[in-house]
């Protein structure tokens, strides 16, 4: 594991812990309301079903395209499942907690998506698409970053649509 990767892992771990303690401090204000809980349940179901279907199809895909590799294939399945969950939750206005600020989400996704995309592109340029006949995991990072940015685009679209909703004071 090179130094840069170790720093990235430590940074992600630190960010994760910081988010956890920050949310815990917020207490009940960090909760979802009943409609959101119901919508998120549906989103979890769709995400899980997507993951299950992808895993079932993975063997067939790997037979047709063996250069993808099991690792990359697994990551693609996970990515698709999580993306379906996120997009469903966003579409049903159940992604943000009650008092969560949209800019926090936009900033985090934007940074993660762009950062991952840039790192993936640089890594691909350096190592190439295939490494020892198998797909470079940097390509997986690019796909995942693309999913993050797609989710961000859906989020921004829904925010804009919600702002245009007919609402009388």
């Amino acid at each position: 594991m090179n130094g840069l990767l170790l720093i990235a892992v430590l940074l992600i771990a630190w960010l994760g812990l910081a988010c956890y303690f920050w949310q815990r401090e917020r207490g009940p204000k960090a909760a979802y309301d009943e409609r959101q809980e119901q919508a998120r349940g549906l989103a979890y179901k769709y995400g899980f079903l997507t993951l299950a279907v992808c895993v079932c199809l993975l063997d067939t895909v790997l037979t047709l395209f063996p250069w993808i590799g099991t690792e990359a294939g697994g990551f693609f399945c996970l990515d698709l499942g999580v993306t379906v969950f996120a997009v469903t939750a966003i579409w049903k206005d159940a992604y943000l907690r009650l008092y969560e600020k949209p800019w926090e989400v936009v900033t985090m996704w934007g940074l993660c998506g762009l950062g991952g995309l840039l790192y993936g592109v640089f890594s691909l340029r350096k190592e190439g698409l295939l490494v020892d006949g198998m797909l470079n995991l940097s390509a997986v990072l690019i796909v995942i970053s693309g999913s993050v940015l797609l989710t961000l685009a859906v989020f921004l679209y829904r925010r804009r649509a919600a702002g245009r909703e007919d609402e009388e004071p």
Binding site: D33, R35, L96, L98
Partner: peptide, 17 residues
């Protein structure tokens, strides 16, 4: 203690509280 979208959904008849 709910989101604005929930109130909107109740008023539009899209959600049964």
């Amino acid at each position: 203690g709910v989101s604005r979208q929930t109130i909107n959904a109740i008023e539009k008849g899209d959600y049964n509280p």
